[in-house]
């Protein structure tokens, strides 16, 4: 079952507080996966547990057959499971070129550096124009592009995006959404957290609603889902 990300009975959290409770989901069986749900209910914690930034207290996370729960982030990136960090922070004093070079740090990614750079620049031509500009001087949308571009440099077998359009102006948001669709069309399976469910529906037919640190609903391909249904999921019938 290569390329499949299976999370079973995952419990994780910070300090004395559990954020995820016994969460189970399968990612990759039906193409891209979209995660949505109210803020503060564990979406980001889930992504951080997958990429090794947060310890899994119990349960298992398997990627392509290997158990990756509580592995170091470094070995998880090394397997090709790449988590694009939220772009607003990134590396403020590095240039775009340096960020992308850093993305190709793992041996697995270094072998493909040329091809990955070409791909990243094709999706985000703006990055090429501003190659020597420091990240701190970029706009929010451009930082997000650097962030996703850096993740592409890590040669992802599966790419995790945490709210790629958070806080962006509509026009920039449009541009990023198109880029994310391009990446998906290029053959990289995506896991995307996004508040904009319309965008998620365009990207994926397999959605999970995460609420109170658990999967509150799963929408599989073939199950149609309208605006009203989503509102009902959020707010109750």
């Amino acid at each position: 079952m290569s390329g499949l990300l299976e999370i079973t009975n995952l419990t994780a959290g910070y300090g004395r507080i559990d954020v995820l409770h016994d969460l189970t989901m399968t990612i990759g069986a039906h193409g891209n996966v979209g995660l949505f749900g109210p803020n503060g209910h564990g979406k980001t914690t889930l992504l951080r547990a997958i990429s090794g930034l947060v310890k899994a207290r119990s349960g298992s996370i398997r990627f392509g057959g290997a158990d990756i729960a509580n592995q170091t982030p470094r070995s998880i990136v090394g397997l090709g499971l790449v988590h694009s960090s939220q772009g607003n922070r990134l590396f403020p004093d590095l240039t775009i070129g340096e960020c992308l070079a850093l993305g190709a740090y793992t041996p697995r990614a270094r072998a493909q550096e040329e091809a990955n750079r070409e791909r990243a620049l094709k999706i985000f031509p703006k990055l090429g124009e501003r190659w020597n500009q420091k990240v701190r001087t970029l706009s929010g949308g451009e930082r997000q592009m650097v962030s996703i571009g850096t993740a592409l440099m890590s040669n992802p077998a599966m790419l995790i995006l945490d709210e790629p359009t958070l806080g962006l102006a509509p026009k920039v948001k449009e541009e990023l959404c198109r880029a994310v669709l391009d990446i998906s069309a290029g053959g990289i399976p995506l896991v995307v957290v996004e508040q904009d469910v319309e965008f998620l529906l365009e990207l994926s037919q397999h959605l999970y609603l995460v609420n109170h640190g658990q999967v509150a609903a799963e929408i599989k391909p073939g199950q149609t889902m309208g605006h009203a249904d989503i509102m009902a999921l959020y707010f109750g019938q």
């Binding site: 930034l53 982030p73 470094r74 090394g78 590396f91 004093d93 340096e98 993740a151």
Partner: peptide, 19 residues
Amino acid sequence: LALRAVAQNEDASLLVGLN
């Protein structure tokens, strides 16, 4: 480059696979 990056953002450094 990796040394300079760690200084700026530890989480992002971990996510690109830095030790």
